[in-house]
């Protein structure tokens, strides 16, 4: 069972305090952006073996949505960060590159 640290209230808590919300950093496609963009937005998910960016809500705590970078194989959590960004913070990318040589952000 995962341990996650909420970047908003600073609590490190077990998974049961959180609710998962799927892949992070999706780009919303609205009306007029074409079927392909809409299909990608609604249905296409990378499901990587390894580094993954995902959404979590501190549902039983402060209620905030945040993002986490996690290894789907080892369960290692590289970091959590506030959701109000469109890409992972550069220092987190650097951390992951150091820990997972050869990995590059999608």
């Amino acid at each position: 069972m995962l341990l996650l640290t909420c970047p908003y209230c600073g609590v490190t808590a077990e998974e049961t305090e959180f609710a998962p919300g799927g892949a992070a950093h999706l780009t919303r496609a609205g009306p007029g952006e074409g079927d392909d963009a809409l299909e990608a937005y609604l249905f296409h998910r990378a499901n990587p073996k390894g580094v993954h960016f995902e959404r979590w809500r501190h549902a039983y705590g402060c209620g905030k949505w945040f993002l986490a970078a996690r290894d789907t194989v080892t369960m290692e959590v590289f970091g959590t960060y506030p959701a109000q960004v469109s890409a992972p913070p550069p220092e987190l990318i650097d951390t992951i590159r150091t820990k997972r040589p050869g990995w590059e952000p999608a």
């Binding site: 609710a19 919303r28 809500r57 549902a59 949505w65 959701a83 109000q84």
Partner: peptide
């Protein structure tokens, strides 16, 4: 309520 907060916090912050 969670749906509203989701959009406010993660898309239209």
């Amino acid at each position: 309520h969670g749906h509203m907060e989701d959009w406010l916090q993660t898309e239209w912050w």
